[in-house]
Amino acid sequence: MSETVNVHDAKTHFSRLLEQAHAGKEIILSKAGKPYARLVPLAEAPGVRQPGHLQGRLDDAFFDALPDEELTAWEGR
């Protein structure tokens, strides 16, 4: 759900609007009654990838070629 706020009110209540945006609410800033900008929360930073996560969980059979019937199913023939 979004809320439309004019620029003057946004300057007056910026801290409150910032907290609302951080909580997930979209704030539309308007100037002269027209939408001008959007205040939205930033996306979460992706986690750091750690190599070796599956070490010891896969054996060599995991890399064997697939049987023909399974290949056919994956290829949609």
Results as ranks from 00 to 15, higher is better:
L71A: 09
H53A: 15
R57E: 12
G52E: 03
D60C: 09
P51E: 03
P51W: 06
E44T: 05
V48D: 13
A21M: 08
D64G: 11
E70N: 02
H13P: 02
L42N: 08
K11S: 14
M1V: 02
E70Q: 00
A23S: 00
N6L: 06
G52A: 04
D60L: 13
T72E: 14
A73H: 02
E19P: 06
L54A: 10
G24S: 04
T4H: 04
N6G: 05
T72S: 14
I28E: 10
D64K: 07
A23Y: 02
R38L: 14
L17V: 00
I28R: 11
A73S: 11
Q50T: 12
A43F: 11
H22M: 09
Y36W: 14
A37K: 07
G24W: 03
L29F: 13
D60T: 08
N6D: 14
E70W: 03
L58I: 03
E19K: 02
E3L: 05
G47M: 10
E75N: 13
E19W: 01
L17Q: 01
G52P: 07
D68F: 00
I27V: 10
A32K: 12
G33Q: 06
T4R: 10
G33P: 03
A32C: 07
L58Y: 05
L18G: 08
D59F: 12
S30M: 00
D59C: 06
A10P: 00
E44G: 09
L66H: 02
L39R: 04
A45E: 14
E70M: 02
V5E: 05
S2C: 08
A37W: 08
H13G: 11
G52C: 03
R57N: 09
T72G: 10
I28Q: 09
A21W: 02
R49D: 15
D68K: 12
L17K: 00
D68S: 15
A32G: 10
F63W: 04
W74Y: 15
G33K: 01
L17R: 02
I27L: 06
K34A: 12
E70A: 03
P35G: 05
G47A: 14
P67D: 06
L54C: 12
L42V: 10
H53G: 14
K31I: 05
E75P: 00
A37D: 14
M1N: 09
H53W: 12
E19Y: 01
L17A: 05
